[in-house]
Design a protein around this nucleic acid. Structure first.
Length: 580
DNA sequence: GGCACCGGCCAC
DNA sequence: AAACGTGGCCGGTGCC
């Protein structure tokens, strides 16, 4: 295989011709930093199978690299990339190149691993696993900014070349495991995810500082009170006789509670909450916890994540972050920002722009209706009534308009809980009724929704017998079950009920991300966050309403592609910030 | 000082 | 004692 090393613009036209003629292109890059805003692309490697081009971007003009954009952005050839999100961000940020059709070996490997947490997915791991070939990764995190050695260039070329045979092997696995549809879904989602990460989300640091300042003073006030009371109970004093206790230490707090006659087994909120009614100390402690949680997890952490040159927060989205297929997110996880107006308000549009927020209405229950084909649940969604109210009306045999708050609440708990594999014990605790009453409620529920009961049972059975679950698009999660281990069987039964539902919801969101991204073409609008059943856009003020409508339309289209019988509803709103 | 684990709690 | 699924992150704790 001929290798060509380009140090200047000379010969770039030949590279373009080769790319245009190729059906498959292995692509990799070496960069001076993993963050596109802090580092540049040093090398761009392109392997067609016949030839490999290593471009030393440092010696080339921007326009020469950009001239490859037509071939790299085209859907005529497939760009094979390991973790395309990374290269897509670099190419977009530095050269305004948007990658076209993809085969992502990283995502493919994760799909094939089917939730096995022991499988690693680095390029070298894949080369060893699928090609029985060792791959030297010693240069990966090396210095790509100065004079490059011949070994570095060779290493770089090999990384791109190996992607072609790797794709062959992974395609074999994907076909064998029936993962073709979900693989395409994931590959199509990689560039939208890259664009979302690169955009980041605008954050109002001043407003946030004011808010956490207020929380600090609340915390300090409660803290001294609590240390006096609980520290005294512990008979723990410092050198000067002042009571001492670490309120962030559950064992210390538990011990103190025992000494003042609060008989709890743990210090978790759900257990302390009933004591809080009689005991001001317990109530105050819960307030301390809530404040400490906000300050500890979000307070300073979010401020440190702001890029001062853009006033934006750039999170890391993990496209296949969970075995069910959901995204996870980290550094920071903008998927778990507390749903409090004072906090969400700080995630806002910059001057002259707006946010459009859209979320699927009860998507998981709609998926349950689709899977089970339960006529009553389908009917509820088709007629557009409030599902929990309608459920309560049938369970308690009262007219819809006479359903009480408690009855609707109980119905809601059952609707949601059953999807997680909840039992009567769990329901009893949640809605505070005796076990027998909870059992009766579930039995009545299943009399109404008989096919839901059937589906949940058979889904759990299938998971135990086959050792795997699948989503509507065929995403696979495999687990080995020791059928003699009751706890394990119970877990797999719950996963059997939940994983297809949670995973199908992820399928729908990922399809939506692609459709929304394509559908926004021509508008000044961009995805900036997604949270399992919700997509957030930032748009120019003048484009915000149009963007919101396309967002809604494409999310519904995605839902309808995957769910055939149940209607999809998306609630969308345009505003200055992320608060509801 | 780094690492793993745990209790606890945020999101969906 | 828990008791329903998926994550990430915090501070405390104990180990090397």
């Amino acid at each position: 295989m001929a290798r060509h090393y380009l140090r200047t613009d000379v010969g770039i036209d030949r590279v373009l011709l080769a790319l245009e003629a190729a059906r498959l292109v292995g692509l990799d890059s070496e960069t001076t930093h993993i963050n596109p805003r802090e580092g540049k692309i040093r090398l761009l490697q392109l392997a067609t199978g016949a030839e490999t081009f290593v471009l030393d971007v440092a010696g080339m003009s921007t326009s020469a690299v950009q001239s490859l954009g037509s071939a790299l952005g085209s859907d005529d050839s497939v760009k094979i990339i390991h973790n395309a999100k990374f290269d897509a961000k670099m190419l977009l940020h530095h050269f305004d190149i948007r990658l076209g059709r993809l085969f992502d070996t990283f995502l493919a490997s994760k799909l094939v691993a089917a939730g096995n947490p022991d499988e690693r997915h680095g390029l070298a791991d894949l080369a060893a696993r699928y090609l029985q070939r060792p791959l030297d990764k010693r240069y990966q995190a090396g210095d790509w900014s100065g004079q490059l050695s011949e070994a570095q260039i060779d290493y770089a070329a090999t990384d791109a070349e190996i992607l072609l045979p790797l794709r062959e092997q992974l395609i074999g696995q994907i076909k064998t495991l029936n993962l073709i549809d979900v693989a395409k879904l994931e590959f199509d989602c990689a560039v939208p995810t890259a664009e979302m990460e690169l955009a980041g989300i605008h954050f109002d640091a001043l407003q946030w500082k004011r808010h956490i300042g207020g929380l600090e003073s609340v915390k300090n006030r409660i803290e001294s009170d609590l240390v006096n009371q609980l520290g005294l109970a512990l008979e723990n004093v410092d050198l000067f006789g002042h009571p001492e206790i670490n309120l962030n230490s559950p064992p210390q707090v538990l011990e103190a509670f025992h000494r003042i006659g609060i008989d709890v087994r743990t210090t978790r909120e759900s257990e302390l909450i009933e004591f809080a009614r009689q005991s001001p100390v317990v109530a105050q402690f819960l307030e301390y916890r809530a404040t400490q949680k906000l300050l500890g997890t979000y307070g300073q952490a979010l401020l440190e994540r702001i890029d001062p040159s853009t006033n934006r927060i750039y999170a890391d989205f993990h496209q296949i972050g969970t075995p069910t297929g959901r995204f996870s997110c980290s550094e920071p996880s903008v998927q778990q920002i507390p749903n409090l107006p004072e906090i969400r308000r700080c995630f806002c549009a910059p001057q002259g722009r707006k946010l459009a927020i859209a979320d699927y209405s009860q998507i998981e229950l709609r998926i349950l209706a689709e899977f089970s084909q339960d006529p009553h649940m389908l009917e509820a969604f088709l007629s557009g009534v409030d599902l929990h109210r309608s459920t309560a009306s049938q369970m308690f045999r009262v007219p819809v308009e006479e359903v009480t708050r408690e009855q609707r609440g109980a119905a809601k708990q059952i609707n949601f809980g059953l999807m997680y594999g909840m039992g009567a014990g769990g329901l009893a605790a949640r809605i505070e009724v005796p076990l027998a009453e909870a059992e009766r409620l579930i039995a009545t529920y299943f009399q109404v929704y008989q096919k839901v009961a059937e589906w949940l049972r058979s889904s759990a059975d299938t998971a135990v017998h086959t050792g795997h679950t699948r989503t509507k698009l065929g995403r696979l999660w495999r687990f080995h079950v020791d059928t003699r281990n009751r706890e394990q069987v119970g877990m797999v039964q719950r996963l059997g009920k939940n994983a297809p539902i949670q995973g199908t919801s992820a399928d729908i969101l990922k399809r939506a991300m692609r459709l929304v991204r394509d559908g926004l073409k021509g508008l000044d609008a961009q995805m900036v966050n997604c949270v399992h059943d919700e997509i957030v856009l930032e748009a120019a003020e003048s484009d915000a309403e149009a963007a919101a409508e396309r967002l809604r339309r494409e999310m519904i289209n995605a839902g309808q592609e995957i769910l055939k019988t149940v209607p999809i509803e998306v609630e969308v709103k345009v505003g200055m910030d992320w608060s509801k």
